[in-house]
């Protein structure tokens, strides 16, 4: 895999660009707003709102610029290989993020709760987090807050089907792109976006159901905490993926992507399949087992 650049094509080094520092400014404002808001300083809404606007604007402009550069043909094979490696390692870091959240789930379920239960039976330390605490999963909630869990074979199973189908439709779109069937590309992308949106709608419904009917909230002990952080961050990733798919669809409608060169499309499908796989793990370990 020795990297030989194209002989007539020096590696493209972009001119000075305002987007990176603007994006940093946006992230800073978002962080500042968050830190102020969680401490009940209403002034935090200002940096938060400004940061969100700046984030959206900068990302649009930055990616727009990259799309323009792609169209002008400054990217050769070596540049594209950089993008591939870059996206791959980015997804690897995302994988670690979710793996840590699963690690937290396994630790709480298999180590923390049994360990806490072992204290209740010791004469010298009759510690118990709440009355009648036992080493079961779901772990029950802090005192006085009973809750029910989301049944796996209802909405979650339907959502599994939806996400698996969306993986198929995006692959169908990819096949269409490679074969030069633009109609199939656009239809496949549109279907995938619809399925993603449907998944999100059902997920929002499920969250509100959990909060209003089941009594399952962030406050419901470690079960509620792990449930919502895992499904919540997955939902956030589906949202980001859906936005990215929409951008790809817009580009496809404008005639971008050739059967041979379409890295942006591929990157988004990688991301989408990654989110898909995370969901399968979620379904098995959060909802089912």
């Amino acid at each position: 895999m020795s990297a030989v650049p194209d002989a007539h094509h020096p590696y493209y080094v972009p001119q000075p660009s305002p987007y990176p520092i603007l994006l940093s400014g946006a992230v800073f404002l978002l962080g500042l707003g968050l830190a102020l808001l969680v401490n009940s300083f209403a002034a935090g809404w200002w940096p938060l709102g400004l940061g969100a606007l700046l984030l959206a604007g900068t990302l649009t402009a930055w990616f727009g610029r990259v799309v323009g550069e792609t169209r002008s043909g400054v990217y050769g094979h070596q540049e594209e290989r950089s993008f591939r490696w870059g996206m791959m390692w980015f997804i690897a870091s995302e994988l670690v993020f979710f793996a840590s959240l699963f690690g937290v789930l396994f630790y709480e379920r298999n180590i923390a709760v049994p360990w806490l239960a072992s204290f209740t039976s010791r004469a010298w330390s009759a510690y118990t987090p709440w009355p009648h605490f036992s080493a079961t999963w779901p772990s029950g909630g802090p005192a006085g807050r009973p809750f029910q869990v989301v049944a796996p074979w209802g909405v979650p199973a339907v959502n599994t089907l939806i996400l698996l189908s969306s993986g198929a439709t995006v692959t169908w779109a990819h096949l269409g792109l490679r074969a030069g069937r633009r109609g199939q590309l656009k239809a496949g992308l549109a279907l995938t976006i619809l399925l993603g949106a449907l998944f999100l709608a059902l997920q929002i419904h499920e969250f509100s159901h959990a909060y209003t009917r089941l009594g399952l909230t962030l406050h419901s002990g470690v079960y509620g905490a792990t449930f919502f952080i895992l499904t919540g961050f997955h939902g956030l990733h589906v949202t980001i993926g859906t936005i990215m798919l929409s951008a790809i669809l817009l580009r496809a409608l404008k005639g971008d992507f050739s059967p041979e060169r379409h890295f942006a499309f591929e990157a988004v499908t990688w991301y989408w399949h990654f989110v898909d796989v995370v969901w399968l793990m979620l379904f098995v370990f959060v909802y089912w087992l």
Partner: peptide, 12 residues
Amino acid sequence: GTHFFSAAGGGD
């Protein structure tokens, strides 16, 4: 209100 790191909610 989560209890990841708090024994009061079953965390650690």
